[in-house]
């Protein structure tokens, strides 16, 4: 799918983790409805890059732009346009799925209301619609810690959707899930990208899944420049660049 309208971009982005460069001069454009996979071995800096893209870590040099605005100086109204999904779901276990999703609406409340957790009826309705979107409506009233891993990740995605994001950054969202649930979560993220026009950036370990899922892949390797290419052009040479070995395609674990 061709990227239409860039929502997330980096310009000459440089980020080091300690002394080690993660990205050097990265220019990246992610469009509306586009799925970008971050691929690379452990230690390549995928999580650091995601934290940098979300504004949780400042760049050492260069810029991260969300809808044209520097992520460093995003106000509350723009910051809510970036949603993050985590490997460990990061739900509050002892409250309901619905209340977890409502947390995604906090960025839309006046600060005093947010501090008291006083949501408007439209926020509650929207939270239910987000749970419906991820197939979890019937479990809205259940405590998050009684849900399976796959269900929890769906609730976390519903919470992300409640932010009405332009971008969802997913950091290893399927690493804690079995293959069936993992594939279902990736399908859901892609479907959200396609139908809602959200740009999805997702770090993954599984090469074959990434190639099948993504429109584009950013291959990251320790101490090497990142490579950015369409998923269908990912081949054994690219893999060798990232992982240092050439896999037999079709037999990659």
């Amino acid at each position: 799918m061709a990227a239409q309208g860039v929502v997330l971009a980096t310009r000459a982005l440089c980020k080091r983790l300690g002394e080690r460069p993660i990205v050097q001069g990265l220019n990246l454009d992610v469009g509306r409805g586009e799925c970008l996979a971050l691929l690379g071995p452990s230690g390549a800096g995928k999580t650091t890059l995601i934290r940098c893209l979300s504004g949780q870590l400042p760049p050492d040099d260069g810029q991260v732009l969300l809808e044209g605005h520097n992520v460093d100086v995003l106000g509350r109204s723009r910051r809510r346009r970036v949603a993050v999904v985590f490997q460990q779901f990061n739900l509050v276990g002892r409250i309901s799925a619905l209340d977890n999703v409502l947390a995604g609406r906090l960025g839309y409340l006046p600060v005093w209301r947010a501090m008291l957790g006083r949501f408007e009826p439209c926020d509650r309705l929207q939270a239910l619609q987000c749970l419906e979107r991820v197939g979890m409506l019937e479990h809205a009233g259940r405590r998050a810690d009684t849900l399976s891993g796959g269900q929890q990740q769906r609730v976390a995605i519903a919470r992300a959707l409640a932010q009405q994001p332009a971008v969802i950054l997913a950091d290893e969202p399927i690493a804690s899930l079995d293959p069936v649930n993992g594939a279902a979560v990736l399908d859901l993220l892609r479907d959200i990208a396609r139908t809602e026009g959200v740009a999805v950036v997702c770090s993954l370990h599984q090469l074959e899944l990434a190639v099948a899922w993504a429109d584009r892949i950013l291959g990251m390797a320790p101490n090497r420049p990142a490579i950015d290419l369409p998923a269908h052009r990912f081949d054994a040479d690219t893999s060798a660049h990232i992982y240092g070995w050439k896999p037999e395609f079709g037999g990659i674990a």
Binding site: L98, R124, E138
Partner: peptide, 19 residues
């Protein structure tokens, strides 16, 4: 009312009703 309806419908086999 809105939130208790969720559990009610689930308990009576109506979990698939849309929002």
């Amino acid at each position: 009312h809105r939130e208790s309806l969720v559990d009610t419908l689930s308990a009576h086999g109506l979990a698939d009703l849309s929002v």
